[in-house]
Design a protein around this nucleic acid. Structure first.
Lengths: 328, 328
DNA sequence: TTGTAAGCGTTATCAG
DNA sequence: CTGATAACGCTTACAA
């Protein structure tokens, strides 16, 4: 592998001049520039990025944390972020926390060891106080998930609103017995706010909150199937159910149909995210502007890195949209 | 940020000794080791990875190329690869080629500039002769996609078999007019072999090949919908259709139902991949052992890197499975 | 406009 | 078992 030194020698110039050409500095005669260019060409030279990273103390790499890349909500987010980052000359390191606190902490070392210039969290597994210390090593920001204590830029959706409009829709359809499905993450504002929205809609309509209709550990299609069975075995089952993801909703629906229940007559179901599958099966759901939150987050991160902005709270809030289909 | 020098000074030892402790070399007294550990602790020291990369000439990073991360087939592959890589102490850089030749070439520079130790291609957009030169800069391998000219390790499925068993199944169901959907990539052996398998099954059964039933540009749900319309507008439409992905199949089905066609009576549909959506909607499909090809590929790549294996052809072939559901 | 020289933070070599 | 010293390949004051 040719180094900058080799190029310099062949061109009969100094390393400095070569470096200047590479980095498009002014004050290099066209003649010398051509000399350098030719030498680089001849030697098939490419700058070594490790050396450059060490010298410039930056990596042009951004880490994106997601629970699992196979969750379509997150893969869409990563798709947009990856493309936008590439356009701006940055790479993406993908960090899957697998809903694990340890895994999340392990990956945080990337920032500490200067392997990335910054990181974007789309979910949070640990308490913020466990993450905060890492802010000393580089910019961190939130996209989707949010947190009161976090003094970082945050691009998010008001999940109280999300929970509210979904539940409100079910109430408007005449339902009074409305179940609620969610995951188990107790640190998540996304989860807790969505639940708040659900309760708010219920309270407004003077409907009771029934703890038996609160269903947990809901992440996947399989979980949805399990949840349907739980509902079916209840003495006084809900007539409608609010779910935290289209996958869970799809699982419930699938199993309901298997048991000869009619949707929405026997059970109305509302999903969340508006993933492609929702349109396919006709699921009413709540659309999140994924492309936009992803793009806004990546923009913000790159700006933070390039302008070396100090870490501070900055909220960018976007809105949901109800997509009515035949499951309600 | 504390450096190894700071630790050395605080511990009253040399950089070398500190480095030895960090890298778990033998021949360091327990006493000095403790001294070093304490100093590292006190200074909150972490080794700088850029410096290490430069010195060791390796990055512990692997690039994975996919067309789009939102395609569930590829996101599953990346999920498995990412987790396995993390387990082995490697990071993953995600490269989305967006089905673009240029984008693919752009990303190949990563290897050249020594930003990654190796790369795994799950799809190929360019001709192999355009990719081959990059093999001088580090190990490249294939996973899923394959190519005759490529002298690299390849983990793949025999797509002739895939095309064959799907088509054969439709023939066994009594169909004689069988359509075929695929994408447009002319470089892809996955695509051309699958088509060969289709033709082989047809020929074996003495059925004619009708060019009008060859449908192209099929990638997404939307494409599937468009394709259904093409089929519906034919004078002599096929009664069954083989598709290259569950998403396309789902789109065709969705639109068919919208137009009051019955599946499988008016049109039988077979998908490919066995994505979660297939089970959900009851799509007959061909399962690919994604987890296994992904894991085998990553294993192979890490072995290649760590043992500095020379690049050579090595084929690992795995098998398909037909999953019969109600769409056929 | 160009070059010299000093580092960025490690690890490998070699001598002790 | 430990330490001095020389790289790894690049950029950036500073000098000329």
């Amino acid at each position: 592998m040719a180094t900058i030194q080799d190029v310099a020698k062949l061109a009969g110039l100094s390393r400095t001049t070569v470096s200047r050409v590479i980095n498009q500095h002014p004050y290099v005669t066209d003649e010398k520039k051509r000399l350098v260019m030719n030498a680089m060409e001849e030697l098939n030279y490419v700058p070594n990025s490790s050396a450059r990273r060490l010298r410039k103390q930056q990596t042009e790499t951004i880490a994106v944390y997601v629970p699992r890349i196979t969750n379509p909500f997150f893969s869409q987010m990563v798709e947009v972020m990856g493309n936008y980052a590439a356009e701006k000359g940055y790479q993406l390191i993908l960090c899957q926390t697998s809903y694990s606190r340890n895994q999340e902490i392990n990956y945080l070392e990337l920032l500490k060891t200067k392997q990335v210039d910054g990181l974007i969290l789309t979910s949070i597994e640990n308490e913020w106080s466990d993450i905060e210390p890492y802010m000393n090593f580089g910019p961190i920001m939130l996209c989707n998930e949010y947190n009161d204590e976090a003094k970082v830029p945050t691009v998010y959706l008001n999940q109280i609103e999300g929970g509210y409009i979904g539940t409100r829709h079910l109430i408007e359809q005449g339902h009074t017995k409305i179940g609620y499905c969610s995951g188990d993450n107790t640190e998540s504002r996304v989860a807790s706010d969505r639940y708040k929205g659900y309760k708010k809609a219920l309270a407004e309509a003077g409907l009771p909150l029934n703890e038996k209709w609160f269903l947990t550990s809901a992440y996947s299609i399989e979980d949805g199937k399990r949840i349907f069975k739980e509902i079916a075995s209840m003495k006084d089952p809900p007539t409608a159910v609010f779910t935290g993801s289209d996958e869970v909703a799809a699982g419930i629906w699938k199993e309901a149909v298997n048991h000869q229940w009619r949707v929405p007559d026997d059970l109305a179901i509302i999903g969340f995210d508006d993933q492609p599958v929702a349109e396919l099966i006709g699921l009413t759901t709540i659309e999140q502007p994924i492309e936009e939150i992803a793009k806004r987050a990546m923009e913000q991160m790159i700006e933070t890195i390039e302008k070396k902005l100090p870490s501070k709270r900055k909220e960018i809030q976007l809105d949901f949209k109800l997509v009515k289909r035949r499951s309600t």
